[in-house]
Design a protein around this nucleic acid. Structure first.
Lengths: 255, 255
DNA sequence: GTTAGGGGTTGACGTTACGTCAACCGCAAC
DNA sequence: GTTGCGGTTGACGTAACGTCAACCCCTAAC
């Protein structure tokens, strides 16, 4: 006794598409095929389908199911392994959810990403002259080039620059809130973006870039601005820049 | 200033394949394309890539990311929604893991699925005559046909039949351990398989099939066998058969 | 001159478990 | 004759790329 596909579908609750799929991948072959390619399933096939549905209900992959059915792999063993995979996946999602939650919190606090929308406010009272002396004596060449590069800048150009840096700070704050290590590729690529931004006015070498990071973190206007975006951001940014200087610019220092 | 694809890859840590993918789906288009189709990315594109990577890190889908970037959808709002989806997925996996664990436990107890491997042992001492009187008086026609159908059965045929029923019991025990409701399609399709098995010797109508389920659950050899496979299985099987009789055979009774 | 090598690029196919859809086919009613 | 219905089939799409064969350009070596 055997039944055509449509009847098997009604009997078992699966769609015809599913049965055709199982046929194609060799998981469940019909007993025989009638004229016009009509598939017919026998008793044996129905029982096999039952076993398939049982394991599929537990979210096992079809490949694993096939292994259990055809290679006489222990079902209990397969399920134990499947359980391990499930728990690992749950933990991964759990961690991810916590990260996202922290990120949302950081966004909602309104200090991180919204800062990117109000760069003027963020940089209000920023005193550039604070660093002038340090830069002029420590990196005279770079200082000179920076001055020349910014000489021709319009006010709109300055504003765009501030907005860009503010946006970078916002993204960096999200990375920090997410708990991403400062050495993570995605953070490093963010630092690289910052490096490119800086490059538009001057070209720091490894030493100078690492020093710039240090300056961000020490007491002063920069630290204030960074920490206004998110507490601790100055240190995080500084650390990320130190890693970048070491790994991408060949910096050898430690300070 | 702009950079060719390979350099952007090294800068940002993504593969060239990824960038080509983003190009194809319109998520990130190069600033201009050189001879030979070489893609070049400018400053603006790099910043956009940063934003993409930031959200991708949190497992957001590319479509959602595109919505945030292009349709000015609030990032916080998108992330909150994403968080809800993550939590739901975690709960789903959690429930599933608990189900799989129960299933594994049921399998390990050795009484469920292994019963399918020792049908003779399972049915040891099974006394068919127990039900002879009931069946003969209550369902005389069916009884007669069953007798005729089993007359020509070899011992091997009987053994195969027992093995099949034992295997069905094992699967049903797993469904029960998994906490699947008796009315669930997958369980009902298992009952249907049982129905087909029974049909090989006689053809119960709705009443008879429901009654058969009742018989499985009442005190006697059948209940003993079922509960030997897994405690509570007799009632579960009986309930599933009652649902089947109602929904698939048009049974109107309640008892 | 040419040839091998290296670095870069492209399109095409594979991945999971099917859903969705246009096309076709046989059979019954009008 | 045709119109509809129930059934079937193959083909394409899904998410986010990995992997791979093929091809192109430039350079150094023979």
């Amino acid at each position: 006794m055997s039944w055509p596909m449509a009847q098997v579908c009604r009997m078992s609750g699966v769609t015809s598409r599913t049965l055709r799929h199982y046929h194609r991948i060799g998981l469940l072959e019909p007993e025989w095929t009638g004229p016009g390619g009509v598939r017919h399933y026998g008793h044996e096939q129905l029982l096999r389908l039952q076993r398939i549905l049982l394991m599929r209900e537990l979210d096992m992959g079809l490949a694993d199911i096939a292994r259990v059915l055809d290679e006489h792999r222990s079902q209990a063993e397969a399920l134990r392994e499947h359980l391990r995979a499930l728990l690992a996946e749950r933990d991964r999602i759990d961690t991810l959810a916590a990260t996202v939650r922290r990120t949302v919190d950081a966004l909602e606090e309104g200090d991180a990403m919204e800062a990117a929308d109000r760069p003027e406010e963020l940089f209000a009272g920023f005193d550039t002259s604070f660093y002038t002396e340090h830069a002029r004596t420590e990196w005279p060449n770079e200082w000179g080039r920076a001055v020349r590069a910014t000489e021709g800048l319009t006010e709109e150009g300055w504003a765009r620059g501030r907005a860009e840096v503010a946006a970078q700070m916002g993204r960096m704050a999200v990375h920090m809130a997410a708990g991403t290590p400062a050495g993570d590729p995605v953070v490093q690529s963010e630092v690289h973006a910052h490096y490119l931004t800086v490059n538009r006015t001057w070209t720091p070498d490894a030493d100078a870039f690492a020093d710039l990071g240090r300056v961000y973190a020490e007491e002063g206007p920069w630290r204030e601005v960074y920490d206004r975006v998110a507490p601790g951001l100055a240190d995080y940014q500084s650390e990320a820049m130190r890693v970048y200087a070491r790994e991408r610019l060949g910096w050898r220092g430690q300070a």
